[in-house]
Design a protein around this nucleic acid. Structure first.
Lengths: 112, 112
DNA sequence: TTAGGTACCTAATGCGGCGAGGTAGAAAAT
DNA sequence: ATTTTCTACCTCGCCGCATTAGGTACCTAA
């Protein structure tokens, strides 16, 4: 449904957008994405965790382990200052592309 | 400005959207993209031609050489039936992702 | 005790963008 | 005259990165 490349391009901004609303942990992020997209976006944990690690190395997010009752400890992520900047930058890129697609293809503009 | 991955994810739908409006050749496509995006999308020929070839192999587009006055012969591409289907499918994917991003991030919704 | 949900991690492959380099003709500038 | 610039196409090879497939571990319900 959603192409591989589109999937790849959207992971980082979506993660940043979720964490911008509050800290969260990996497994929960996957479910939020599925819920919010109405099941159209299905992420696997195998693709998410490496991305989270890379984003932490890049300083866009930060993590902290926290115990949970009736569950394994979870690694909670929160967005950093540079992360918020990155989110803004990514969103502006998305707007550019979306606008170009809208101009080229009338039906798109109608749908927004 | 536009991330690598976003670039990768948008090339094919943009090409298909351009060709859906009429046949065109590579060099011209690059300029159209630059113009339509107001310079925010800068494609290089080195990335475009391989993509066009792959898309032709996939049957999404078809090409024909044609002579031009005061210029080298140009390879004109046109969209095929499967290409139009692919375009619709890609656009629907983009709508899904865009919608998810909008839900997560209010400022986006305002901008559309 | 077995299955399924929660929760995390990693190694190896493979794809694809992109930079760099190449061909060639026409026009404009030096 | 000759060099540069613009048009117009093509290809090779590196490298970064996502994805696949596999693995660990705990809890609850059947």
């Amino acid at each position: 449904m959603v192409s591989k490349q589109l999937m790849a391009a959207s992971t980082r901004p979506i993660i940043l957008a979720i964490l911008a609303r509050g800290e969260d942990y990996g497994y929960s992020i996957i479910q939020k994405v599925r819920d919010i997209s109405g099941g159209r976006l299905e992420w696997t944990d195998g693709m998410l965790y490496p991305v989270l690690q890379r984003m932490e190395m890049d300083g866009l997010i930060a993590s902290k382990w926290r115990a949970a009752q009736g569950s394994r400890p979870r690694r909670y992520y929160r967005i950093t200052g540079p992360g918020r900047q990155e989110l803004e930058s990514e969103l502006s890129g998305w707007r550019s592309v979306w606008k170009a697609l809208s101009v080229l293809s009338d039906p798109v503009a109608v749908e927004t």
